[in-house]
Design a protein around this nucleic acid. Structure first.
Lengths: 216, 216
DNA sequence: TAGATTGTTAATCGATTAACAATC
DNA sequence: TAGATTGTTAATCGATTAACAATC
């Protein structure tokens, strides 16, 4: 019935709005206007209204948006009303950190399966979860119906691991390996290249310091 | 003389091209065309040419781009020809992981100052770096002329830490705290909200599984 | 030279913003 | 009712892609 294609950027902003609504709720505010919301992060109020309108008519003309019901609606839309089981592959520094990262648990993401290829790590328990061999990915993921995966392995092994995850039924992946991955269109991949982020920062500094830099 | 304003997205893609050039160089290839480069990550060849043209005329008509010289030029542009000292604030799970993360060192980013507010952690040595109290941020950063910082603290304390970093002279920050930060325009902030990334994934799954979902 | 590929201009596409009738 | 703010359409802006003359 309604509009069909939601832009990626809208979905990203929805989770920013959500963060803001949580804060306002804590402060005891009952309602908020698109302008107030937009001012919090230098966005345009029309954009806020348009983003929200993608998912329904949540606002009240002349008043704004009631915070609690809006928060519930957005959480429902983002699928945050349920807990998600997540498979983590790679228990190096980054993987171990993600395992204990509080932010995930708070938001209902539970890393309930962990895989590594290092025999020394297999069968160890981390945060109450037993580490398994990457060879077990397909059957375990399939059995437990896990749909979400995190790749914290080195670039060289990432594609093979992704293939296994996908074969097991995973359709959404957070990838920290700095490499280009291939998967069916039905699989959503979010890439986070930490080094690349630092590189854009180093560009910024280099640009700022460059003596003959043309001021923009 | 030349074009002035480089889009953020172009800079991000440059570091992707760089990764690809490194691979090709390893394989012993001498030159590459914009089409070959674009095919590697489903981009458009015109976009590759345009991105590169922002920084100069690197190509040879009829042939393409010589890989090694292009790589050197791009590294120079991104400021990767020198080592960068980075200040890390927050030595929790994530901070500790970043401290030992190999990818940073490989690319010339050295975390050479670490701050935490927990007295139990202060004065400990991590990876050869002595942990200092966050109260020492301003003088230490200033003394060592550190320009780049990483925020791995909780949301509540992030703004205060950022203020200190900026006062000390930092102009580029990688922020993992899920909160909206404010800084002068001259300071570049890259936000990485890990939970928000998982939320877009959960939206994707919810959307896929939604029984009455209209197929796009 | 003939074939290939760049650098760049023009056309297209999508996302952001402005504007305003609808309405609380 | 008068004032405020939404939802949405139209205008603007920027980024992507197509096309092609320049040229290796």
């Amino acid at each position: 019935m309604k509009a069909i294609k939601i832009p990626e950027k809208t979905v990203t902003r929805i989770s920013i709005y959500l963060r803001c609504l949580e804060e306002l709720e804590h402060e005891g505010t009952a309602s908020v206007s698109s302008t107030q919301l937009a001012d919090r992060f230098g966005l345009n109020s029309a954009q806020v209204r348009k983003d929200l309108a993608c998912f329904g008519q949540f606002g009240i003309r002349g008043l704004g948006y009631y915070i609690t019901p809006l928060r519930h609606s957005l959480e429902e839309i983002l699928g945050l009303k349920r807990a998600w089981d997540v498979a983590l592959v790679g228990l190096g520094n980054l993987g171990s950190a993600l395992m204990t990262y509080k932010g995930f648990h708070e938001k209902g993401f539970k890393i309930s399966a962990v895989f590594d290829r290092d025999p020394a790590k297999i069968d160890r328990r981390v945060e109450g979860v037993q580490v398994m061999d990457i060879g077990a990915i397909v059957p375990v993921i399939r059995k437990r119906k896990i749909k979400m995966g995190i790749l914290a392995v080195r670039a060289a092994g990432a594609q093979a691991v992704l293939d296994a995850l996908v074969e097991g039924g995973v359709i959404a992946v957070l990838n920290f390996a700095p490499t280009q991955l291939t998967a069916p269109d039905s699989v959503k991949i979010q890439n986070v290249d930490l080094s690349a982020l630092l590189k854009t920062l180093s560009y910024h500094i280099a640009q700022t310091e460059r003596p003959n830099s043309r001021t923009p």
